[in-house]
Amino acid sequence: MHRFANPARFMRVAERLLPWFLGLGGILLLAGLYQGLIASPADYQQHETVRIMYLHVPAAILAQGFYFGMALGSASFLIWKHPLGDLMARAMAPVGAALCFICLVTGAIWGKPTWGTYWVWDARLTSMLILLFLYFGYMALANAFDDPSRGHKPAALLAVVGVVNIPVIKFSVYFFNTLHQKSTLFAEGGPSMDPDMLLALMLMLGALGFLATAMAIIRLRGEMTVVKLRAARHGLNRHDDATQDVKHEETTR
């Protein structure tokens, strides 16, 4: 694993994978949209609104997955001081926050016709909202210091601390018997839904997963460029200072 901790080597692999992720994500998205909107049947009870699921559930799974990935990257940064882990976490944060937001908004739109309300303070919904706040807090803390490199460690620590929320989200529907339904995907004895619906859900999960990862790679490239620029500018400044010192000495002489 440490072999890929070298940012340049990691980036070479990531750059090679990027077009594949984008292509696969695009193809899966088209297939998933076709399967989800046209080929799969409507629900006997929720009718056509069930199709919101094909965006809602993948976004929810990926929002949690991205947070977990962010925490892992941050932990590896704190433990082994690999800057790559921190850069990955920074690149993933806005993508994960967007997924979390998509999950909450689609959930609200889905909730109105099926539950009769956009929002309830159900345990699952509340813990998902906390996840969005954690994403916001992470991004705010990472950018809150005048010296940008000072924000890395506090933000990484926050990401690791916030991981306590992930099992709370996962088990909230089992511990607290509230409005949000239990998982049908990871239910005992396999997923309990129509195979056509399951196919649509899996296609969309793959599509969103590949596209979100591709976006994170593009953002990672940007983060690395920022770091390189900062290092270059830092070196330049030092160089300027040095030449100025020389000039200063010459004039005083």
């Binding site: 509340t126 906390i130 706040f133 954690l134 916001f136 807090g137 705010a140 803390l141 809150a144 210091f145 005048d146 000072r150 924000g151 506090p154 620590l157 926050l158 601390v161 916030g162 709370v168």
Partner: peptide, 27 residues
């Protein structure tokens, strides 16, 4: 204490602390 330690030296530390700490206070 975690929130206060994380925001040491940050710009607008008080507001930032609210954003970090309040979600964790909800349980």
């Amino acid at each position: 204490a975690v929130g206060a330690a994380l925001t040491l030296g940050a710009r607008r530390a008080g507001l930032l602390m609210a954003l970090l700490v309040l979600p964790l206070y909800i349980p």
